[in-house]
């Protein structure tokens, strides 16, 4: 479904990622691990069209989306949960979810406000509150819910565990496993391996803008020296 080939991208004149290549099938899931500054966020932003790719090809459901603007990419079926969450603070929780609706979506679209609230009862209780008053965990749930409202086939999550308490991370992990079972493909960038493992089966590790390792979590567990070298733990 997603076919990323040799993308290279950066900011201004500074190169941030190079020669990034990976594929992801329908309903599959992949975690990108790596230290700060390894290029994880840039990779996701490039996929999303928010940081233009300098080179390379991004195939999604058979079409090349590398030249599309981020709104067209979102409409093609990719949901994006940014690192800083970027919820709309002055809007209520429900209104935030409504911004994620695609214009002209039909009534039988799988994701609705009610279904997001089923997945995250925590934010259902706050439905009319301004999103600016939510806690960090609630904000993250709202950001995920907002992306789901567009009924994506692929969900991009950028370091969702950042700044969250362990109990909230577990809660998020449960929700992401549920989404996988529902057939949504997931591409998650993480530093938290526990959450990454809950969300994905395959893994790539990035180092200084390039992919330094690719495999599965079980392989990674058998080779602790890789983890030590590339992640420094």
């Amino acid at each position: 479904m997603l076919d990323v080939r040799n993308i290279r991208s950066g900011y201004g004149k500074a190169l941030a990622i190079e020669d990034v290549t990976f594929t992801l099938g329908a309903s599959e899931s992949l975690a990108i691990l790596g230290r700060n500054g390894a290029g994880k966020s840039t990779t996701l932003k490039t996929l999303m069209g928010m940081t233009p790719a300098w080179q390379g090809r991004i195939g999604f459901k058979g079409n090349d989306i590398v030249k599309l603007s981020s709104d067209a990419i979102a409409r093609a079926g990719i949901g994006y949960v940014p690192e800083e969450r970027r919820i709309f603070e002055s809007l209520s929780v429900t209104e935030n979810l409504q911004t994620g609706e695609k214009a002209g979506a039909s009534g039988d679209a799988p994701w609705t406000v009610a279904r997001v609230f089923d997945l995250f009862p925590e934010i259902a209780r706050r439905s009319t509150a301004p999103a600016g008053t939510l806690s960090g965990g609630e904000r993250q749930m709202l950001a995920v819910g907002r992306a789901l409202m567009g009924n994506p086939d692929l969900l991009l999550l950028d370091e969702p565990s950042e700044g969250l308490a362990p109990v909230v991370v577990n809660r998020l992990g449960d929700a992401l496993s549920e989404l996988r079972r529902a057939g949504i493909a997931i591409l998650i960038s993480e530093q938290n391996r526990r959450l990454a493992r809950l969300a994905a089966e395959n893994v790539v590790i990035m180092e200084t803008g390039r992919i330094a390792y690719r495999g599965t979590f079980s392989e990674l567990d058998r080779n602790p020296e890789i983890t030590a070298r590339l992640l420094g733990v």
Partner: peptide
């Protein structure tokens, strides 16, 4: 709602599929 969201964060709204 979209106007208010755009007032806060236009780029994010676009990444949700709204044509600016």
């Amino acid at each position: 709602i979209l106007v208010r969201a755009a007032t806060e964060d236009r780029e994010m709204l676009q990444a949700l599929g709204v044509r600016p």
